[in-house]
């Protein structure tokens, strides 16, 4: 068991964003966190990564409370890949990767060079952030976060802003990584979630609705209820594809009610 959340709660400004999440994650594997907008996926990831402190409950990392883990130790063991990233200063690729690598202490130039090469950044190490394309930026960000090869990666909607090829590339890379490390990602694209991750956690209104192997959650009716649609499960030779269909009852109800009110006047 590598990371455990125990009755995690986050309240902010009178709203409850995470309302009691208990979750145990293993040392390796790919976990997708899915749910509708505002379900609390991103916040849950931030809490698990220790980037935000919970107002209730605790996260433990190998039996030690994350809050009690030294910050540098946490930064070495956990990588957090934010959904959006814009550096305030126009740094070069090499400098950005250096900042990621140096979070555990000084880094030798040759090791830095290896990281740059490993992520395919050698060709543009001296380019500035502002000159990079979306795909290049995503790779630089990944290199920064993974430069110290953390045990656990929390990725918030990886590749959400990328075109389909780059998004696939990125998710594929995470899936590869999850064979030897733990990768937890908030994923918007349900087909990607079910195809590339072993385990799927379905979240709604700050709570876990369902949690299990991808195949099991895929056939679970709670998926339809949580997203407020009806899914057609289309079997293809590459697996099942979800096609969302509007649920007819969702819209008709209020219109009928409105008509009734109008008639009574």
């Amino acid at each position: 068991m590598s990371i455990v959340a125990d009755d995690l709660v986050l309240r902010s400004g009178g709203a409850t964003i995470i309302a009691g999440v208990t979750l145990a994650l293993p040392a390796t594997g790919g976990v997708a966190v899915i749910g509708p907008n505002g379900a609390g996926k991103s916040t849950l990831l931030r809490l698990l990564a220790g980037v935000v402190a919970p107002t209730g409950g605790a996260v433990t990392l190998d039996g030690t409370a994350l809050a009690a883990t030294p910050r540098t130790e946490r930064a070495r063991r956990i990588g957090y890949l934010p959904q959006q990233f814009t550096p305030h200063w126009d740094l070069t690729v090499a400098d950005l990767v250096r900042l990621g690598a140096e979070r555990t202490g000084p880094v030798a130039a040759d090791r830095l060079g290896n990281v740059v090469a490993d992520f395919g950044l050698s060709g543009f190490a001296d380019r500035r952030w502002s000159t990079l394309s979306g795909g290049e930026r995503a790779r630089v960000l990944l290199a920064m976060v993974l430069a110290v090869d953390p045990d656990i990666l929390f990725a918030d909607e990886p590749g959400a802003s990328l075109d389909v090829r780059h998004r696939l590339e990125l998710v594929h890379m995470l899936a590869e990584r999850s064979r030897r490390r733990l990768c937890v990602a908030a994923v918007h694209d349900l087909d990607l979630a079910f195809r590339y991750f072993d385990r799927v956690v379905l979240v709604a209104a700050g709570r876990i609705v369902a949690d299990g192997p991808a195949e099991a959650i895929l056939d679970d009716r709670r998926l339809d209820e949580t997203f407020g649609v009806r899914f057609r499960r289309l079997k293809t030779e590459d697996g099942t594809i979800l096609q969302a269909v509007q649920r007819p009852t969702v819209h008709r109800q209020p219109i009928a009610a409105a008509t009734a009110t109008w008639r009574s006047n």
Partner: peptide, 20 residues
């Protein structure tokens, strides 16, 4: 310097990189 560099990546990244 190290902390200011991390802050330049945004507060979330700075926290993720182990800074208070």
């Amino acid at each position: 310097a190290r902390g200011l560099d991390a802050l330049g990546l945004g507060e979330t990244m700075a926290t993720g990189f182990g800074h208070d």
